[in-house]
Design a protein around this nucleic acid. Structure first.
Lengths: 244, 244
DNA sequence: TAGGCCCATAAATCAGACGTAATCAAGGCC
DNA sequence: GGCCTTGATTACGTCTGATTTATGGGCCTA
């Protein structure tokens, strides 16, 4: 079984609780949390609280100082590339702004990844990419939403993995979270349009034919379209609660 | 004082020790480390070891399983965007490959960041960017290596920060580590050439004049040059020890 | 007012105990 | 003979109490 048994219950529960609270703004930067205080509030032992705080510190969310407590750090210091932090932020009322950031990053990274994949991937992997694009097309035509999302995630994931660059590859979870988030919050078109489907196929085909420039251009067009489809974020609107 | 007092001694010592060992290949993926074993080897208490392991688990370097121990995870699962992980990997014998990866990522991200900065940054910040490019030029002409490195880091950092995208901004540490690493391991040209200096100035000027496309193109040329200057990595050469 | 000393405080560390789940192997059943 | 059940074992997970350490702020002196 390759399923990691979902970490220890208490630790991950408290970690998630605090992560969501911090990223969601319940504890604004500057707030201090003491260990004893959290022991009471979360009804767990000091070990659990301390280990959670250590992890949060590693993610840049908090900073422990002797004699004062553990202070929430400003958002600029957070490790926004950590998948866990991304999830917490997507769960906050900043989700739209977060999705726009993620999409802008994708628009920068994925075209380059497609270019590199066209130069470096193996014939077998390229073939599987073409197959995935076809599967995506089929899922769209048959209205299989879940299948479409899964194939979409897998497609973009593979392009990143086949770029032959571990930094790009390390972004595959980020892209998956981004797509899942977009779907989960109903921020993507119900019926994926034909152009997007064509562009996915173009990317796959270009990679298979080693046409690096065309792969990059197709992916650029694709990510640009994804970006344009996101609803405008109106300044710092207090987010209309969607019921999630 | 804004200097975080360098974290607790034991914790950071053991964390760094294990991080370097794992990223350096001393413990290949699959190796299991038990808490008690580490307690002896590092001569610290269980709390310290457990907190360190929790952090390493959060960074994706290890995975704890009941009844078996804490196992090193394959490198593909590591959080390669964590600044600490980046440092550990730059300290390993994979440093050249790591620097190439970082540089390829920069080549994808920084041009887009420059484009966004040209659209979004304030006049004041743009002016400071131009000043920084000039300072860079001056440092190069007077042969001030340390000053050049500092100005270089600050220049690229600001472009990322002024992109108005927190994901790009979150990469500023990564770029700093990359530049520092390149310098520290003597992998950059001793005398920065005139073209790189010109391109820095071009980027700053284009941003100030809101010429987004020119800012992007200049940054593309710049990152491309940086990439081309890196020595070729010969397959999986066992790395000629440089004395560091 | 400036500078240095003292102390209360909360994190950092240590030590030991018990709970819990996953592994492995022995034994029985089909 | 092979598969399933079962129980002992093991190392992580959690809890608790004590002790050490560094530091922010108050207080005292010059």
């Amino acid at each position: 079984m390759d399923t990691p048994p979902a970490a220890s219950r208490l630790h991950s529960r408290v970690l998630d609780e605090l992560g969501v609270a911090i990223c969601g703004g319940t504890f604004p930067p500057g707030t201090v949390l003491s260990v004893d205080e959290l022991v009471e509030r979360c009804a767990v032992s000091r070990s659990v609280v301390r280990e959670v705080l250590r992890v949060l510190a590693a993610l840049g969310l908090v900073e422990a100082r002797r004699r004062v407590g553990t202070r929430i750090r400003p958002a600029a210091d957070w490790n926004v590339f950590d998948p866990q932090v991304i999830r917490w932020r997507l769960a906050s009322d900043q989700r739209l702004a977060q999705l726009r950031s993620l999409t802008e990053l994708r628009a920068a990274v994925e075209p380059q990844a497609a270019l590199l994949a066209a130069q470096r991937t193996s014939p077998t992997d390229a073939a599987e990419l073409v197959a995935l694009a076809a599967k995506l097309w089929a899922a769209a035509e048959s209205g299989d939403e879940a299948g479409f999302l899964a194939a979409d995630i897998e497609f973009h994931r593979r392009v990143l993995l086949h770029s032959g660059n571990e930094m790009f590859a390390g972004l595959h979870e980020l892209v998956a979270e981004s797509l899942t988030g977009r779907h989960h919050y109903h921020l993507m078109p119900v019926h994926p349009d034909r152009r997007a489907l064509t562009l996915h196929a173009d990317v796959a085909q270009a990679i298979q034919r080693r046409d690096a420039d065309r792969a990059r251009d197709a992916m650029t067009a694709l990510t640009q379209q994804i970006h344009d489809e996101l609803p405008e974020v109106e300044g710092r609107a207090p987010s209309q609660r969607l019921g999630f």
